[in-house]
Design a protein around this nucleic acid. Structure first.
Ligand SMILES: [Mn+2]
Ligand SMILES: [Mn+2]
Ligand SMILES: [Zn+2]
Ligand SMILES: [Zn+2]
Lengths: 149, 149
DNA sequence: AGGATAGATGAGAATCTATTGCAACTTGGG
DNA sequence: CCCAAGTTGCAATAGATTCTCATCTATCCT
């Protein structure tokens, strides 16, 4: 699994720095149970409870930074705010089926898709960061509750 | 192609109404050249120029409505605002490869993915609205211009 | 090890997309 | 043609994210 050492290496390589805050954020995501996703606020609160407070600005800055480095995935699981999870390779890599009404989310795996993504990026000369299939749909429960929208 | 008549039918079926504004919005997206995507503001301005002004609130309300009906696709092609395009079936259905630095976007097609999406949704009892593979990457140009982020 | 320097943080203000309340107006149904 | 419920426009508001700037610090150099 992606280590603090490699995080430091990648940061320094670009003239950036490994800070305690960045290290903490990485560790939180590494220890996050499968299927969990954190928003900036979620992470902020989680750290507050642990007495590891990091300012919200710093959290926003680093979530974006780490997503652009390919360490985290940025997910649109709900309206109005992003969620993040660690970006893992092949056997853990997965996708999301999302109910647009209640945001219930199901994760699923599919090897072919990641391959397709990698191939497509390569073919165009792009450097791949993340590859996610998003299925927007309406869950069984929400289908039944016929619906003021 | 999805007609105004079927839009009216689908709306009425749920107790909603076909308004001139909704009809206009549908037509704009139907006539949009392949590869173009509009934000709420884009659409608002475009209509202003054509003297077909629709209030921004109404635009926001209906873009969301039509996305939830499966008529439009909601895309995260850039930070800070969504883009929309018409949601078309199999031979036109496509996906997006996006540079996270400059937002340069390339569209590509892949039959398998749509099938996978449909199958996954069905298996879980979800009613499919949209299925999009998003590849986040860094384009050749942005790779070279090494990079204050 | 000590100092210099560019990068990073924290706190709060600012920005800006998107939502909402409400009065006036329309659509679809009867 | 009439009514009820849905829709619109406008302005006010919300809420997530970004920005400013003073202060701090990780990394590099001697
Ligand atoms: Mn996940
Ligand atoms: Mn497109
Ligand atoms: Zn649902
Ligand atoms: Zn680029």
């Amino acid at each position: 699994m992606y280590s603090v050492t490699s995080l430091k290496a990648e940061l320094n390589e670009r003239g950036w720095r490994l800070t305690p805050q960045r290290e903490t954020i990485l560790q939180v995501f590494q220890n996050l149970p499968e299927g969990q996703h954190l928003s900036a606020e979620d992470l902020h609160n989680l750290l507050l409870e642990d007495g590891e407070a990091i300012s919200l600005s710093t959290i926003y800055r680093n979530l974006k930074l780490m997503a652009r480095m390919g360490i985290l995935r940025e997910l649109e699981l709900a309206e109005g705010h992003k969620h993040y999870e660690i970006n893992q390779p092949a056997p853990y890599h997965h996708h999301h089926l999302i109910c647009v009404r209640c945001n219930k989310t199901i994760e699923f795996k599919n090897d072919t898709i990641l391959k397709t993504g990698a191939k497509t990026a390569q073919k165009e000369g792009y450097h791949l960061l993340d590859c996610q299939l998003i299925i927007h749909a309406i869950c069984p429960t929400c289908q039944r509750s016929l619906l003021p929208m």
